[in-house]
Structure formats: structure tokens, C-alpha cells
């Protein structure tokens, strides 16, 4: 009796296994990609499911690079249809895609996202230039024309006008798209003001400009931005680096520091006067259009004016919208499934 039921259970289990092994048709749209784009894809997916009554798209946050890898894995129901990215697709990723038969991709520039450095409301407001941020956070800096290990321990060591307080900045780890963007938009920009570093050969220049210091003042705080927010709250001397949406949601606890005199705000990011913002993209696999039900409608919803336009629901989540003519071009390309050319680098 007992044994019989055991055998039954085993048979059921084996049957379940073999059914799952058969490749299955998929009726949900699958979205992967950057954690920065994740909230926007979430919003579009929920809106799409509510409006059309189609099965809810599956949105997964894998990081920009991880998303590209899965996205470029091939064509077919086993591979995702859309990937989000907090930077443009690289040539190496495009080549990976092509080598796996994913040749027809539409690139959609969704808008911009601001990066902010913030401090607790109890802490000191700061007004720094990108060069000063570089001096505070890089592993090697230029002092009197020589490149040395970063000697700055206090903000006032860099410039006497800055507060006399220890440098303590929490930021994302190297696996994060936010970190890539910070390095590109702040460190590499700040680097340009130092003649001795500019004079280095290409590899050494890249290394010096991109390496963050590891002697304490810069703390890698993990991917969870909420944790950084909590730690900033408990330590008014610490500064944190994260996407603008986290600052926006926590403005009762945090204030954004000024970069070159400009505070991070929706208006200043949109008009470009706040210097640290990055483009946000998503990529659509055109071979899946018409195969995965609803993909065309989903892309239309994602690029509609209600979503990515001014006052749209993506703006409410922290997206900085595109100017009108650029937006119209993007919407048209997305609708007509225009294939992107190979990236330049």
C-alpha cells in the first residue's frame, strides 16, 4: 500500500519532469536587463497588462551586462525579447548577438537618469567640481605635477573652502551599471583637468582615471541602494552615490550635493545643467515581433507619450524625458522596428 503510493508519487514526479523538458510555447513577454531600467520596465509592463488584459510580462533585473548576455543568447522562445541597459550596447555584445543569430535589434533611447551624490539632512551640503570628486575618490591623483597615491583624507585637504571633515563616500560595486556610469561621467571627466594624468599613455591614463581608491574613504556598499540610504541617515558625515530616483523618494532624509554649483533636480537634469546624467536604453529583438504575442503592443506602450513623454508615468518614477523631436524619432523607429547599426566601440 505504502510502496504503491510511493511508486505513484515517483511516476508523477518523473512525468512532471518529462513534460517540463519539452520546449514550450511562451505567451508572456520576457524582459531582462539593467537594475536602473528595471523600475521603468516594471511600470510599462504593469500598465500593458492592465490595459490590454494580456498575460503579465516577466521583468527581471539582471544588470546591464548580464541582460545583454542572456538577450544575445539566441532567437526563440527560450530567450528574452527585450533587455534594458543603462549604457549603449557595446560592439562586443553586438557581435555576440550576431554570432547567435540575433541580427535584427531595435535600439530605443528611453530618456535620461541622473546620478546623485547625497548626504543626510543633518549633514553638510557640499559644492564640488568633478575634478574635486575625482581627487576625493580616485586611487591615484596628481599632486604638484606628480602622480601619487591619493593623500587626501579630508575634504579640506583638497580645497580649503570645502568642509574640514573626513572623506567618506559610499558607492556601488564594480558590477553595477551605476558604478560604470559614475566612472564615465565623473571620474573620467574630472581626470581631464590634470595635465600630468592627461600626458600618460592610453592604458595608464585609463587605469588612473578609472580606479577608485581602496584605502577607506570610498566604501563599496553593495547593490542595494536602500541600505546606503539607511547608512547615510545614521552617519551625517557620510555621502552616498546612487540613482536620482532614490534621492527623489527619500528627500525628507537626504539632500543632494551640488556638482559645479548645480543641485540635482528634475529640471536641472532635464536641461543638462546638472552634469551627471546617463542615457537609458532598451533593446527589442525584432525576430520575436509577431511571434511572441503582444510584443509589438508592449513596445508601443513603452514608447507611448503616456509613458516616456512629459508628465508620463515613467517620469513619475524618475526618468528624465527626451526633447520632443528626439522622442518622435525614437517612437517611429520603435514602431517600424528599425534595425540598429553595429555600435562603433
Amino acid at each position: 500500500m505504502k510502496l504503491k503510493s510511493l511508486t505513484m508519487a515517483a511516476t508523477v514526479a518523473v512525468a512532471a519532469l518529462s513534460v517540463a523538458g519539452v520546449a514550450h510555447a511562451r505567451d508572456q513577454i520576457q524582459v531582462v536587463g539593467s537594475s536602473t531600467v528595471f523600475p521603468f520596465s516594471q511600470a510599462a509592463a504593469e500598465q500593458f497588462a492592465n490595459e490590454t488584459g494580456s498575460p503579465a510580462p516577466v521583468v527581471e533585473s539582471t544588470g546591464t551586462g548580464g541582460g545583454m548576455k542572456i538577450f544575445c543568447g539566441g532567437v526563440g522562445t527560450g530567450h528574452p525579447d527585450v533587455t534594458g541597459a543603462s549604457r549603449a550596447m557595446k560592439l562586443s555584445e553586438y557581435e555576440l548577438c550576431t554570432s547567435n543569430g540575433v541580427t535584427d535589434i531595435t535600439e530605443v533611447l528611453l530618456g535620461f537618469d541622473g546620478l546623485s551624490m547625497a548626504v543626510s539632512r543633518k549633514g553638510k551640503q557640499l559644492d564640488v567640481s568633478k575634478a574635486q570628486l575625482f581627487q576625493a575618490l580616485a586611487a591615484k591623483v596628481e599632486v604638484d605635477g606628480k602622480i601619487v597615491d591619493n593623500p587626501f583624507k579630508k575634504w579640506s585637504d583638497i580645497d580649503p573652502s570645502l568642509p574640514n571633515a573626513e572623506i567618506s563616500v559610499m558607492g556601488p560595486p564594480p558590477t553595477s551599471g551605476t558604478r560604470d556610469a559614475w566612472v564615465e561621467l565623473v571620474m573620467e571627466e574630472g581626470c581631464k583637468t590634470f595635465p600630468a594624468i592627461e600626458a600618460l599613455d592610453k592604458d595608464a591614463h585609463k587605469e588612473t582615471c578609472q580606479r577608485m581608491r581602496t584605502d577607506g574613504p570610498f566604501i563599496e556598499a553593495g547593490e542595494n541602494d536602500n541600505l546606503i540610504v539607511q547608512r547615510l541617515e545614521s552617519d551625517p558625515n557620510a555621502y552616498g552615490i546612487f540613482g536620482y530616483s532614490f534621492l527623489y523618494e527619500n528627500q525628507d532624509k537626504l539632500q543632494g550635493i551640488k556638482v559645479a554649483g548645480v543641485e540635482p533636480k528634475e529640471e536641472t537634469i532635464a536641461d543638462g545643467s546638472y552634469g551627471i546624467s546617463r542615457p537609458i536604453y532598451f533593446y527589442v529583438k525584432n525576430a520575436h515581433r509577431g511571434v511572441i504575442p503582444g510584443l509589438n503592443e508592449f513596445v508601443t506602450e513603452y514608447t507611448s507619450d503616456e509613458a516616456m513623454g512629459p508628465g508620463g508615468y515613467l517620469e513619475e518614477r524618475g526618468l528624465i524625458v527626451l526633447a520632443e523631436d528626439r522622442r518622435a524619432a525614437v517612437q517611429k523607429a520603435a514602431k517600424d522596428a528599425v534595425n540598429m547599426p553595429a555600435p562603433k566601440k
Partner: peptide, 8 residues
Amino acid sequence: GMNAFITA
């Protein structure tokens, strides 16, 4: 991939 966002 069981950390996906799905509204159903």
C-alpha cells in the same frame, strides 16, 4: 530568474 517582476 525567480526574482522577476510579474503582476499576475
